[in-house]
């Protein structure tokens, strides 16, 4: 028995490392490119490890005229959008998962439908819409944080994901709470939310990620360099006759770091999900 466990463990590690190679391998190329000179990117035979480490690339991108500000803007935009989305989408998801009300199915299908219209085609009408938001200045929400954040803050995917997750929580729990005199909001707040930490963490990460990697919408809203976000700043390394490969890759490497840190930081939340109920119930 002991031996079998050991073999199992070895197999687990071998598989884990194999998967790691597939998922991380290409990124090593990205990091390597970020450290090469532009000439070496093009070099033949291709080099895997840079012959000379150009850490200067990482300095250069920060000296770029728009990147630092764009980085900051992205953090602001993604953070606020994430908070809005996690809170409001979970409220709506709770209603869809637990409450009965007229038009429930149609409304939910409508939520799903919002994810299906290709975002690119909404640009033309959305531009007019945000330019004509009532009670705003002559250019509406153009070139403002409100314009960058609000129209895309709530996502259908968040409502959908949370609803699906809430549905997997045993209903007995909220029944009991209802007997104890909890209001619906209390059930949502005290029972469903604490049990859904992994899903909430997921929504937070994906919302943040979605905003972090958003290009088209931000490009449409941002008119001045002060409102640029990270992907716009990165796209600017592609010019008519040339791509600054090293700078794009240095920028992309840098841009990936906050995401990984966030993902790493949210890890404990994943382990405190529904799985906890089992042990709770056992004793």
């Amino acid at each position: 028995m002991q031996k079998r466990k050991k073999i199992n463990l070895i197999i687990t590690y071998v598989l884990a490392i194999f998967v790691l190679m597939i998922f991380v391998g290409p990124y090593l190329w990205m990091v390597a490119t970020a450290l090469k000179s532009q000439g070496e990117v093009m070099a033949w035979p291709p080099t895997i490890i840079p012959t000379e480490f150009h850490f200067q690339n990482f300095v250069d991108i920060w000296q770029n005229s728009v990147l630092p500000r764009a980085f900051f803007n992205s953090v602001i935009v993604a953070t606020i959008a994430t908070v809005i989305n996690v809170f409001f989408a979970s409220l709506a998801a709770f209603a869809f998962a637990r409450l009965e009300f007229p038009w429930k199915n149609s409304l939910f299908l409508a939520v799903l439908a919002t994810m299906m219209i290709p975002p690119g085609l909404m640009i033309v009408p959305l531009f007019s819409l945000i330019r004509n938001i009532p009670f705003t200045g002559p250019s509406g929400w153009l070139d403002s944080y409100a314009g960058l954040i609000i129209p895309t803050a709530i996502t259908g995917f968040a409502i959908f994901l949370l609803k699906q997750y809430f549905m997997s929580i045993p209903k007995d729990l909220d029944d009991q709470a209802a007997i104890d005199g909890c209001s619906k909001f209390q059930i949502y707040w005290r029972i469903i939310l604490p049990l859904s930490r992994p899903a909430l963490a997921l929504v937070a990460i994906f919302t943040f990620l979605g905003n972090w990697n958003e290009y088209l919408w931000h490009l449409t809203v941002a008119r001045s360099a002060d409102m640029y976000t990270i992907q716009i700043a990165l796209a600017r390394f592609q010019t008519e006759h040339n791509i600054e490969w090293t700078l794009i890759m240095a920028g992309a490497t840098t841009a990936a770091v906050p995401m990984l840190i966030m993902y790493f930081a949210l890890q404990p939340l994943f382990e405190k999900g529904l799985g906890g109920i089992g042990t709770g119930m056992k004793d």
Partner: peptide, 24 residues
């Protein structure tokens, strides 16, 4: 009460999705 749960999210989501879709 139920619609109070739904309104904030759906209002934002539908305004910025369906108004453009109608236009499309």
């Amino acid at each position: 009460g139920t619609y109070l749960f739904l309104t904030p999210a759906l209002l934002l989501l539908f305004t910025f999705s369906f108004v453009p879709i109608i236009y499309v």
